[in-house]
Design a protein around this nucleic acid. Structure first.
Length: 468
DNA sequence: AGCTCGTTTCGGGGAAGTCA
DNA sequence: TGACTTCCCCGAAACGAGCT
C-alpha cells in the first residue's frame, strides 16, 4: 500500500475529512477517535522520529505542529483508504504510537510532541471513557500535572514552585518555570478557589455608577486591588437597598470580601451582610465593622463657616436620599452649626435624588425659601440646582451661593465653577481595599473606622450676598 | 451516594549535611 | 560512624458544584 500523502489539516479539510469518514448515524461511543479536528496544525516536514512511527501503519501519517508548543498533531490518510479502514487504522496507529513510540522514545521527543503523544494515548485509553473525559480532552487544557510529568516531579512540587518558590530548590524551580513556559500553563482559577477558599477577587458595590464620584472611588479601589494581585468585580445597586443586599449576597460567593460604598441598607441589614462576607464600608459606619469615611459633620461645619464668613445668614440644605447615612450625619452637623452660630438660620429643603435632576427639583424650593446660599448633597445635585436657578433668570452666586460636596473635577468645568468640599476619592477607595485586605489577613478587628481628610475648594459659585 | 474536575496544603518520609 | 537536623519532595485529603 502506498504511503499516504500528508494533507494540511485546515478547518476546511478537517470538516471534509469528518464528512467522509464519520458515519453520521452512529452513536457517540461508536464513533472513531476525533484525532483530526482539535489538533489543527502540522508541519510539512515531520520530524524523523515521527516519520519512522508512521511506517508502522501504512496508509496513514501523523504530523505535529512544529511551531505551536501545545502539542498540535494530526492523523491523515490517503483518499484511497475506505472510511472504515481509516477508522481502524487510526485506532491501530494511535495504539501503536502510544504503546511503542511513547514508551520507548518519549523522552527523546520535543515537548510539543510529547504532548501530542500523550493526547494520542488519551484517545486510546479513554475510548470507552465518559463524556466528561472526552470533553476535557477536547478542551485541551494544560494542567499542573502535565507540568509535573514533564519536569519529573510531583504535582505538589509544581504547586509549591509557583506559589511558594522559596520552599523549592533553585534547580527544581528553574525546571518547573521552564516547563510552565514551554507548555503555556496557566493555573485554573476555579480550581484554586476550590482548594483554598480564596478567590483573589474583591467586590465593589456602589449606589450609582453614573455618578463620577463613585467612578473615581472605583478607580482607587481597582488600582489598589490590582497592585496586590486582586481583581475587582463592580456592581451597581441603583440606589436600591433591596438590590444592594441581593448584590452583596450574590457577590459573597465569588469574592473574598466586599467594599460596600455608601450603602443605603439599614444597619441591621449591613450587619447581616457582614456575617456572610468580609465587608468594608465606605462612607458609612456601623458598629465595629471596618470602614473608611469622612467626618461629615466637620465638612458641613467648614462649608457653613465659609458662607457665614461671606455674610450669609439664611442657608438652605438640599439633602440626598432618605436612606443615606452621609445625609443623616450632615443634618446632625447642620444642627450643631445652628446651635453654634445663633445668627445663622438653617433651612431644610428636603430629600432629593443625588443627581442633576434632583438639583433641578430643589432649585425652586431654594429660591422660594429666600435663602441666600445652598448646601447641596453632592456636586451633581449642586450643578443641577445652579442650572435651574440660572434658567429662572437669577444669577449664581449673585442671587444664590451654592456649595456642593465631593469635589468632582467636572465642578471646575461649569460656569460658574462650583465651590465644593472635596475628598481624595481614589485615596478613599484605596484605603477601603487596604482595610479589607488587612481584615482578610489578620482577621476581624485589625482595622477599624478610618477617617480621611477633606478640603474646601473655593471657586466661583460662592460670594458675598447682595443686599435685598 | 459517589464520582469528577484542578489545585492547595498538611504531615511525613527520605536524602543530604553537620557534628561529636 | 552514628545520631541528629535540615531541606526537599511526595501522597493524600479536601474544597464545591454538577453530573451520573
Amino acid at each position: 500500500m502506498p504511503r499516504a500523502r500528508l494533507r494540511r489539516a485546515t478547518s476546511c479539510n478537517v470538516r471534509r475529512q469528518r464528512r467522509t469518514s464519520l458515519p453520521s448515524t452512529t452513536s457517540y461511543n461508536e464513533r472513531p477517535p476525533r484525532t483530526v479536528g482539535p489538533f489543527g496544525c502540522w508541519s510539512v516536514h515531520p520530524p524523523a522520529s515521527l516519520a519512522m512511527s508512521c511506517r508502522a501503519v501504512p496508509g496513514c501519517a501523523v504530523s505535529c505542529c512544529g511551531t505551536h508548543r501545545s502539542g498540535c498533531c494530526d492523523l491523515s490518510f490517503s483518499s484511497k483508504v475506505r472510511s472504515d479502514e481509516v477508522n481502524h487504522k487510526r485506532l491501530q496507529f494511535a495504539r501503536g504510537f502510544a504503546s511503542r513510540s511513547c514508551r520507548r522514545r518519549h523522552h527523546l521527543l520535543p515537548v510539543h510532541m510529547q504532548l501530542a503523544c500523550k493526547r494520542l494515548h488519551f484517545i486510546v485509553t479513554s475510548w470507552d471513557g465518559s463524556h466528561r473525559q472526552r470533553r476535557r480532552y477536547m478542551m485541551s487544557t494544560v494542567t499542573a500535572q502535565q507540568v509535573a510529568d514533564l519536569v519529573g516531579v510531583s504535582l505538589s512540587t509544581v504547586s509549591r514552585a509557583l506559589s511558594a518558590p522559596d520552599l523549592v530548590s533553585p534547580a527544581t524551580l528553574v525546571r518547573v518555570q521552564a516547563a510552565v513556559r514551554q507548555l503555556g500553563y496557566h493555573p485554573n482559577r476555579a480550581a484554586s478557589t476550590l482548594a483554598t477558599g480564596r478567590t483573589t477577587s474583591i467586590g465593589l458595590v456602589v449606589p450609582d455608577l453614573e455618578n463620577p464620584y463613585f467612578a473615581s472611588v472605583a478607580k482607587g479601589v481597582q488600582s489598589r486591588a490590582w497592585s496586590t494581585g486582586y481583581t475587582v468585580m463592580v456592581a451597581d445597586s441603583d440606589e436600591d437597598p433591596v438590590r444592594e443586599a441581593e448584590v452583596v449576597k450574590k457577590l459573597s460567593r465569588q469574592v473574598d470580601g466586599v467594599v460596600l460604598c455608601s450603602p443605603r441598607s439599614t444597619d441591621a441589614v449591613v450587619r447581616d451582610l457582614a456575617s456572610r462576607v468580609r465587608l468594608v464600608l465606605l462612607n458609612r459606619q456601623v458598629d465595629d465593622l471596618p470602614s473608611v469615611s469622612v467626618d461629615n459633620a466637620a465638612t458641613v461645619r467648614t462649608a457653613v463657616e465659609h458662607l457665614r464668613a461671606l455674610g450669609h445668614r439664611r442657608i438652605a440644605y438640599a439633602g440626598g436620599p432618605q436612606a443615606s447615612w452621609v445625609d443623616l450625619r450632615r443634618r446632625e452637623g447642620l444642627q450643631h452649626c445652628s446651635e453654634a452660630f445663633q445668627d445663622v438660620e438653617i433651612i431644610d429643603l428636603g430629600h432629593f435624588r443625588p443627581h442633576y435632576t434632583g438639583g433641578i427639583a430643589a432649585a425652586d424650593l431654594a429660591l422660594a425659601s429666600n435663602a441666600t446660599a445652598v448646601l447641596a448633597y453632592n456636586d451633581l445635585l449642586a450643578l443641577g440646582l445652579i442650572g435651574q436657578v440660572r434658567q429662572r433668570g437669577f444669577g449664581v452666586p449673585q442671587r444664590l451661593s451654592v456649595i456642593g460636596f465631593d469635589g468632582l473635577a467636572i465642578g471646575a468645568l461649569f460656569t460658574p465653577t462650583l465651590t465644593s468640599v472635596g475628598v481624595a476619592h481614589a485615596r478613599l477607595g484605596s484605603l477601603a481595599v487596604s482595610a479589607l485586605l488587612e481584615d482578610l489577613s489578620s482577621g476581624p478587628g485589625g482595622f477599624l473606622q478610618h477617617q480621611t481628610p477633606f478640603e474646601l475648594l473655593v471657586r466661583e459659585s460662592t460670594a458675598e450676598p447682595l443686599e435685598r
